[in-house]
């Protein structure tokens, strides 16, 4: 049983990085596709399209921070379950917010191409999703501090 909990602990330790990386890759691909398409139809402003399309890359960074906060000198039965719970759930949050952020960024790029004056405000939904990722990060750090070492 202990070995199983230890295995879960390692799984939870790496989950925020792995799931965060998948979310970031997926989100950046969605936003990047929109940016590339928009560049075909625009005479300028390429930098801002590419710039916003990279916004979902923050999820993997948050995942790395969570992994380091969960890291202990040893993974054992006492801390394995906590690592699993915090790591997997925060990882799934990063995965989901990364993908959804990519989708709303694609919509924002598409809409602001037709109406450039809404470029700033169209990023608001993506910023809100970023906020949710930050919530998950902050409370994962808080809980990691209370874990038995």
């Amino acid at each position: 049983m202990n070995e199983f909990v230890v295995a879960l602990g390692w799984f939870g330790l790496y989950a925020p990085v792995a799931l965060g990386a998948i979310g970031s890759a997926w989100g950046c691909a969605l936003g990047g596709s929109a940016a590339i398409g928009a560049m075909l139809d625009s005479d300028g402003g390429y930098g801002r399209f590419i710039g916003v399309s990279l916004m979902p890359s923050s999820q993997v960074i948050y995942g790395i921070v969570i992994m380091f906060s969960l890291q202990q000198t040893t993974v054992d039965a006492a801390n394995g379950a906590a690592m699993f719970g915090i790591g997997v759930l925060s990882g799934f949050t990063m995965l989901f917010t990364g993908i959804r952020q990519g989708e709303v960024l694609a919509s924002a790029i598409h809409a602001s191409k037709a109406k450039p004056e809404i470029f700033g405000i169209s990023l608001a939904p993506a910023a809100v999703l970023e906020g949710f990722s930050v919530f998950a990060l902050v409370f994962a750090l808080v809980l990691a501090g209370t874990m038995p070492s």
Partner: peptide, 15 residues
């Protein structure tokens, strides 16, 4: 795949 659709749609100007 959806990524290519996104690129195609965003490459079309607003009508």
């Amino acid at each position: 795949n959806p990524h290519q659709y996104i690129a195609l749609i965003t490459s079309l100007p607003h009508l």
